[in-house]
Design a protein around this nucleic acid. Structure first.
Lengths: 344, 344
DNA sequence: GCTTTTCTCCAAAGCGCTTTGGGTTGGCGA
DNA sequence: TCGCCAACCCAAAGCGCTTTGGAGAAAAGC
């Protein structure tokens, strides 16, 4: 059933039927109801392809996921974020177009999207300090929202968590517990959030006049093995750290493994605190855990961020000239069983 | 730049230019080269929206991800699978359309996709024993591929790992090590793969005339907390299992946590073996780990499965009447440090 | 030499929708 | 009575591509 058939069956023009269904005012209410009823009865849905061509709108949002060639790493964060965003898109009638491209092909991918307007906007994830995607998208005139920030966070819209504050607070928490030998197991510091977290860590340490041990500050892709190896090396070197601050629950699990193998008790011999993106399957949530969360953590749901980012991005489409929207989310510091006073 | 402009600039008709670019034989080779050169120079790409309308092909593959309302759980497996599939789609010029819908809305989502042909095919993940999606998609005439199988795995195309065999082998491995008190921490047994794994476990046990303890066979959504709690309960009940067989690395991590908290050494006091989907960030791979994989595991890369599934699915589109393609992948049993002889 | 075929190319008709630019009609004020 | 303005509705022109059904010229066949 297409519009033509429907309109013929109603004895109306395509114009009128189209307008009736799309809520334009030039059609009598009585007619509108009649049209809607007929459409429903005939199980009619406008052909999306035709509509896209006619309107020029893609009714789709692009997420470009760069596949870092060597590591072949899929960021587990993406999944939860996309799930959150996808929910909103679906609700608003937008499609989510996921594009996996090798890292060096991202620019071309965006240009392609802009050139034939196959998406109405794009979501930018995991920005680096000096991310080339921001100026590129500005040049292309494609609405976009950055989840996170770049080093120069002005003139575009973003949503980010207060990383400096979060890690300052987490560090303070460890310092208050008497820890002085604290290791930072950070993400790749080319990524802006990782740099900010390091800053937060350093600020807190400096404020107490504790100088961090350079050998205990690592920066890498946040895998379980990375956390494991880093912790192994530090713990085996003698006089190791008494506390670890990790950028994600994934390396934190590796740290726990390393400690466990050495017979160290978490929260007693060694403390671990991490940032928790609220990954559901990791279940580090207090509510659903009568035994309490495993890890003490700065928490901010990546899923919720995805939802909010989607909302903002869609609003950007309808209103492209509004001033940049910038939202900074605070994290919760949630107590778990992985931290305790520094051993004497 | 659109086709009309390009053809005018060349002094040719749109027909000829279109055919030249799409490799039809009715155009002289010399002309074709001229057209291609001009297209390249003008940075012309055909408008995807117009092409879709004209051809009726969507050049897109649908992945429908049901959001289980209560749990709000995002399956971490999906991410790696999609990454693999997306790679292939991109290479073949297909878009990946990701649709997040509440579980009860999946049927409507598929019907919608079929009704206006917004995708050329769909990928079905995590099938249940008696999955309604299979008959639905058959009715809709939408090409599809199932990753996994249903209880009646005939008449449609699928790719699956040999779950029974894998878990029989894993169980045998534990039995060979002298374990008799073995717990099965399975996924939800409404899912077909979980049922098969249980079967494999039971078969191996029966073959050695070891009767499994019903209290040690669990089935649930595979979170870390699930593994943790199950292990806690079993270990605290006195005379607990000496070995755990887990359906995924995620609950296995929870089991390890439970054991660790109780001062039990993994691979000595308690053995753990799990199925490993090769999630990159979990890094349970031997190659990249000089210290060896943490977990002994039956391994099969979910990413590679995604790639292969995509290839098969695309071939199904071009050739819809071919007999069903069914591929069964064997798993590797890779030795890690989480297993050892049963304690005396 | 004349008809057929083959090779190239083209005009125009879709694909199914939205949207522009009017047309009718009826009611109301002057 | 006439003119004007809403209120409704419509025909037709796109959107940018593919594809059908030729047409013209050159090559081939008899």
């Amino acid at each position: 059933m297409n519009l033509k058939q429907l309109s013929e069956s109603l004895g109306l023009s395509q114009t009128t039927v189209s307008r009736a269904l799309n809520g334009y005012p030039e059609v009598r209410e009585e007619t509108r109801l009649r049209v809607q009823a007929a459409a429903e009865a005939a199980n009619y849905t406008p052909n999306a392809k035709a509509r896209r061509l006619a309107t020029g709108r893609a009714m789709a949002i692009g997420h470009v996921m760069p596949l870092t060639g060597k590591e072949e790493l899929v960021n587990p964060i993406f999944a939860d974020f996309i799930a959150g965003a996808g929910e909103i898109y679906a609700r608003e009638g937008y499609d989510l177009l996921l594009s996996m491209v090798p890292a060096e092909g991202t620019e071309a991918a965006y240009r392609q999207m802009a050139a034939n307007a196959s998406v109405d906007a794009v979501m930018v994830q995991a920005p680096t300090m000096d991310d080339p995607r921001v100026p590129l998208l500005q040049e292309l005139g494609l609405p976009f929202l950055v989840h996170g920030r770049t080093g120069a966070p002005d003139g575009y819209s973003w949503l980010d968590v207060a990383n400096i504050r979060a890690f300052r607070r987490a560090t303070d928490f460890l310092l208050d517990l008497g820890h002085r030998k604290i290791a930072l197991i950070n993400g790749q510091e080319t990524l802006d959030f990782a740099r900010r977290r390091r800053l937060g860590f350093e600020q807190a340490m400096a404020a107490r006049e504790v100088s961090p041990n350079a050998a205990w500050m690592r920066s890498d892709v946040m895998t379980e093995q990375y956390g494991y190896r880093a912790a192994c090396e530090m713990l085996d070197a003698g006089d190791g750290p008494t506390a670890f601050l990790a950028s994600s629950i994934i390396p934190a699990i590796g740290i726990r493994r390393a400690a466990g193998e050495r017979g160290l008790r978490i929260g007693r011999d060694v403390s671990i605190i991490c940032h928790d993106d609220g990954l559901s399957y990791m279940g580090n949530e207090g509510i659903s855990a009568p035994d309490g969360p495993a890890f003490t953590a700065t928490r901010s749901s990546i899923r919720a961020a995805g939802q909010r980012c989607a909302e903002i991005l869609l609003s950007l489409i309808d209103n492209p000239n509004q001033p940049a929207i910038q939202e900074l989310w605070d994290t919760d510091l949630s107590l778990g069983r992985s931290t305790g006073p520094a051993p004497a």
